[in-house]
């Protein structure tokens, strides 16, 4: 019986890492459910004695007396922002991916590489012109402005995801239709688009998560309370001395909730997006 010892060791290490990964989650859920009388920082690790959702209520609604705003408004802002931005950038990605795989032309690979570069740049290198341009377009500080920004800077990743997906669609199918007389739009409409559901799932889930989680663009483009996304509002809530830490943590959980739900229910697609975001093909 030599094998079990190594296996026990393996399980032990896996469990140890599991602890590392879930401790923050554990604290997040635990703290949110404690009543105000038992949330002291020094009892951070203790289990709650009874269920209480007061922290969530405060994080969601804010407190006029306490002088801080809740996250509810920003949660809705994020929702209004993320839905159109996700759909639009998926459409762009799909068309680009289609062209770049099934209608390659001289220079199309170079174009793809050039587009891809936009995925890696530090956005600090474009924010000054971005603010000035959005002002000229009169969309600075508005949710449509932020949608525009996310769609534009989402083009590289969504193009990549669709291109990698369409490569797996046999080119012969397209060539055959060309011979049958189908044109560019016809082939997309009748052959490619009906096959695209997995591609859309991956691209949209990826974009949903990364736009929801974005902080820099929200901070730069829509810092005003009327249109700020939830990450910006959370950072502000958490930086405030008067907001108790359990309310901050409850706010963190509320912010994390949508992507976590997506991850739990659509994890397969999320994982596929992760892989494609990292390695080509």
């Amino acid at each position: 019986m030599k094998i079990p010892t190594t296996r026990i060791l393996i399980y032990l290490i896996l469990v140890l890492f599991t602890v590392f990964y879930i401790i923050p989650m554990y604290i997040m859920i635990l703290t949110g459910m404690k009543s105000f009388s038992e949330v002291g920082l020094s009892t951070m690790w203790n289990l709650p004695r009874s269920l209480n959702f007061e922290s969530f209520r405060l994080a969601w609604l804010g407190s006029a007396k306490g002088g801080f705003r809740g996250l509810s408004g920003s949660f809705l802002n994020s929702l209004w922002l993320v839905i159109p931005a996700t759909i639009i950038s998926a459409i762009f990605g799909s068309l680009n991916g289609y062209v770049l795989t099934k209608w390659r032309f001289y220079g199309s690979d170079l174009i793809f590489t050039m587009i891809l570069f936009g995925m890696f740049i530090p956005y600090q290198s474009i924010i000054i012109p971005l603010v000035l341009t959005l002002q000229k377009l009169h969309v600075y500080g508005t949710i449509p402005g932020l949608i525009l920004v996310h769609v534009i800077y989402g083009i590289p990743i969504s193009t990549l995801i669709f291109r990698n997906y369409y490569i797996t669609v046999p080119t012969e199918m397209v060539e055959a239709s060309k011979i049958d007389g189908a044109n560019f739009l016809g082939i997309y409409r009748w052959i490619i688009f009906p096959l695209s559901t997995p591609g859309f799932a991956v691209a949209m889930i990826w974009q949903f998560t990364s736009i929801w989680n974005d902080f820099l663009f929200g901070l730069i483009v829509t810092p005003n309370p009327a249109s700020q996304p939830i990450t910006v509002a959370l950072n502000n809530l958490a930086g405030s001395y008067i907001v108790q830490w359990n309310v901050q943590i409850a706010g963190a959980l509320l912010t994390a909730l949508p992507p976590i739900l997506v991850y739990i229910f659509l994890g397969k697609f999320f994982l596929r997006g992760l892989m494609q975001g990292s390695l080509k093909g």
Binding site: Y11, T18, I22, L41, T231, Q248, T255, A256, I260, Y263
Partner: peptide
């Protein structure tokens, strides 16, 4: 060939779904 590999894998990957701002807030307290 680990038992309940799926559970381990999903838990290890979970932090990836979370915003940096959220993890920043939690780790600041931890």
């Amino acid at each position: 060939k680990i038992k309940s590999e799926g559970i381990f894998r999903n838990l290890f990957l979970l932090p990836m779904a979370i915003s940096f701002v959220v993890s920043g807030v939690i780790w600041r307290w931890l």
